[in-house]
């Protein structure tokens, strides 16, 4: 396996980081999972370029990334439509493309969604830390020196030339998600819904919440009616485990959907977004609105099976195409 320099960062945009599927199993040391917020798009991007589906990609937030190819390689862009361009030409998303050495790739701004994923054939060559290449911005490790990308950074890949035949592949249109401005998120109540008044729970169920500009990789922060707790409840609870998708409610009664940058928290949690809907959290942006739909644990499980079945069908479709390519 040869490590080859593949991309030079000309402009990093406000926040571009290296993320893979995440860092699991180290929560007991306080180590957060990190990883791509929209891991559906990460997985599909990797499948398009023939990588293992959990490989590291660039997670591009809203706009601004510009990179130059340092060698011939194959790439795919999934997730938010940030108007990707190859040199001066608009580039199709959810397709794999051939980049010639010296080509530039730029992202001109959001048309829909919040985070785009750039997958490179051959992945991103970095030593995994605790089994993951994901960037942990708070504790400053993983990815590129634990930080966001900056101008002049060089990314390398493992044997990118071996992936060139994966060019020209596409995800069937029917599997490509659309990113609305008004989101419906499915959830199950708990673990502390019993701390809220009936009125507080009703407000949660029937209101529309606005996504605030303070939202980031740590959480989607919402503004709406105050979710009232029962009389006598303190603002905080004894710190305990949290998981991405958990909706915690601090003393001000405004919910925050926790993402994957922490493992514990000291606020009560009214509900938790189901696993099947977690990738959507990566595409919600400030100014969007969110409302919540209650489902049972069985319905949540069924939704997760369906989400995995879609990935299986995409994988199958791409496999058929690569057989064609090999001929």
């Amino acid at each position: 396996m040869a490590v080859v320099e593949t991309l030079e960062v000309l402009s990093p945009g406000p926040l571009t980081t290296v993320q893979d599927r995440g860092r699991f199993g180290y929560g007991r040391y306080g180590v957060a999972p990190s990883g791509a917020v929209d891991f559906f798009s990460l997985r599909i991007g990797n499948l398009l370029v023939n990588n293992p589906e959990g490989e590291a990609c660039l997670e591009i937030t809203v706009l601004g990334l510009k990179v130059r190819a340092l060698t011939d390689l194959v790439i795919a862009i999934t997730g938010a439509d940030l108007q990707p361009h190859l040199n001066e030409e608009p580039l199709k998303m959810w397709h794999s493309h051939f980049l010639r050495k010296a080509d530039t790739l730029s992202f001109r701004g959001p048309r829909s969604g919040c985070r785009a994923y750039l997958a490179l054939g051959g992945g991103i060559s970095l030593s995994p830390i605790m089994e993951s290449k994901s960037t942990n911005l708070f504790s400053r490790f993983g990815g590129l020196e634990g930080r966001a990308l900056k101008g002049g950074d060089i990314l390398s890949s493992d044997s990118p030339h071996l992936y060139l035949k994966a060019r020209g592949r596409a995800v069937d249109q029917r599997w490509i998600p659309s990113y609305p401005k008004n989101w419906a998120l499915r959830f199950a109540f708990g673990p502390q819904d019993d701390h809220f008044t009936e009125e507080g729970k009703r407000a949660f169920l029937h209101s529309s919440f606005e996504v605030t500009p303070q939202s980031d990789r740590t959480g989607v922060r919402l503004a709406g009616p105050v979710l009232q707790t029962k009389p006598g409840m303190e603002d905080s609870i004894i710190s305990e485990g949290v998981i991405s998708g958990t909706i915690q409610v601090p003393g001000d009664g405004q919910p925050i959907i926790i993402l994957a940058e922490t493992v514990t928290g000291g606020y009560r949690k009214i509900a938790t977004v189901i696993t099947a809907d977690l990738p959507l959290l990566g595409q919600i942006k400030p100014g969007d609105t969110v409302h919540f739909q209650e489902v049972s644990v069985d319905e949540a499980l069924q939704a997760l099976r369906e989400a995995e079945a879609i990935i299986e069908r995409i994988r199958g479709g791409l496999r058929d195409e690569s057989i064609d390519l090999d001929r």
Binding site: G27, G241, V242, T264
Partner: peptide, 16 residues
């Protein structure tokens, strides 16, 4: 994975 806290153990599992 399992994560011990003050008064509870957090257990994360694969529902599939």
């Amino acid at each position: 994975e399992t994560i011990p806290c003050y008064r509870s153990l957090h257990i994360i599992y694969d529902p599939l």
